[in-house]
Design a protein around this nucleic acid. Structure first.
Length: 371
DNA sequence: GAACCGTGGCG
DNA sequence: TCGCCAAGGTT
């Protein structure tokens, strides 16, 4: 890693902020520095691209204009507003934090990074972002952009995939950040990281800070940031049950923790949980599911495969391959042994579905007709 | 510290 | 198709 003199730091600040003043992106959450606006946008932007967030942010502010509205919101309305954005614990933590602000802080926001981190869903990055943008505190906001930009500018060789590396960047950036305009400085780094200094297909030769980019000047920019590779998603094979009666389709509520917590879905059976015998045929596996529905839930059901190919969905750490099975149950069958309920298609629009559930329903509706 | 937690876009 | 990436936090 190289180090900058005070003179060079001043020159960098001026170059960066001049560029930002003339080229900053116009974004809905940049119309003011209201901490509620800054906070909601920062949570939505976690691991999510700007273009994805914009419509969600606008809709969210229509539904919940103030932190009080968010604190008072019914959970189903909150989740419906978040539907499709992913990482749904963000939405739950958002409301937790809103209630913390309203009750514990009596509507008065904590105004420094340390206190902001006490709120649910606010970690080191988001605390720095809110403190600098909304409260003009001179603290670093180390996100993926900051890692990428400063790793290249200073040829920092620490592995940005390791948690401890953040402290190295915080220390460096806290020396370089503008003490007069910390919020603009942090946002300028983000705009730089989203334009001239992207992860791939970057355009360093036209960047406003190219003269400060040591890795570019040395022709080794593609070596930064240093980042170890992630592991591949683990594959899970499921049966997805599309079971109909005159009362609607059978849904099951997912566990309250883990992936897609509390979401309603078609019942899923992991092949791994059905048998240890890897050699069993698919029809044999289906018979096991039928027997399990009978013995565990007192539900007599005959299942048949609907589609040739499974519905696939890839998460960050898991890949699901779901083979759809179709069946029918008599009206008013006893559901008291099954952790689920019947839902009519007419009310699907009011439910919050995960993407994978939407895919299952969509694939089922497009199934070849038997007639 | 490593694993977990969604979705969409891109080469 | 696949791996990587995108304004990270929690456990």
């Amino acid at each position: 890693m190289i180090e900058w003199s005070e003179t060079k730091i001043k020159a960098f600040q001026q170059t960066l902020l001049d560029w930002y003043d003339h080229n900053k992106r116009t974004l809905p959450w940049r119309q003011d520095h209201n901490p509620y606006h800054v906070w909601v946008s920062e949570i939505m932007l976690q691991q999510t691209q700007v273009q994805t967030v914009i419509p969600y942010y606008l809709h969210f502010m229509e539904e919940f204009p103030t932190v009080q509205d968010l604190a008072d919101a019914p959970e189903d309305k909150l989740m419906k507003t978040w539907e499709g954005l992913g990482y749904y614990s963000r939405a739950r933590n958002l409301q937790k934090a809103a209630r913390q602000v309203v009750t514990d802080y009596h509507g008065k926001w904590p105004s420094n990074a340390h206190d902001l981190q006490e709120l649910s869903g606010i970690g080191p990055y988001t605390a720095g972002a809110i403190a600098s943008i909304a409260f003009n505190q001179p603290v670093a906001a180390v996100d993926g952009n900051a890692f990428r930009v400063f790793a290249r500018l200073l040829e920092i060789n620490a592995d940005v995939a390791k948690p401890q590396t953040r402290k190295i960047f915080e220390k460096v950036i806290n020396k370089i950040i503008s003490k007069d305009r910390p919020g603009d400085f942090n946002q300028a780094i983000m705009d730089l990281g989203a334009s001239y200094m992207t992860a791939t297909n970057f355009d360093s030769s036209h960047s406003p800070v190219r003269a400060f980019n040591q890795a570019f000047l040395d022709g080794i920019e593609d070596q930064y940031p240093v980042k170890t590779k992630k592991k591949r998603p683990v594959v899970h094979d499921y049966f997805g049950l599309v079971i109909r009666s005159d009362n609607g389709y059978l849904f099951q509520k997912r566990p309250s923790s883990g992936i897609l917590a509390n979401f309603w879905m078609f019942p899923l059976f992991d092949h791994q949980d059905l048998t240890d015998d890897q050699s069993l045929s698919k029809s044999a596996l289906i018979q096991i599911v039928e027997a399990k529905m009978q013995s565990d839930y007192q539900l007599p059901i005959k299942l048949s495969q609907v589609l040739d190919k499974p519905v696939t969905h890839t998460f960050t750490h898991q890949q699901w391959k779901i083979t759809l099975l179709e069946g029918r149950l008599p009206e008013n069958v006893d559901l008291s042994y099954f952790p689920g309920k019947w839902i009519q298609p007419a009310v699907f629009d009011e439910m919050t579905f995960s993407k994978v559930q939407s895919k299952l329903w969509s694939a089922y509706q497009k199934r070849p007709s038997i007639s």
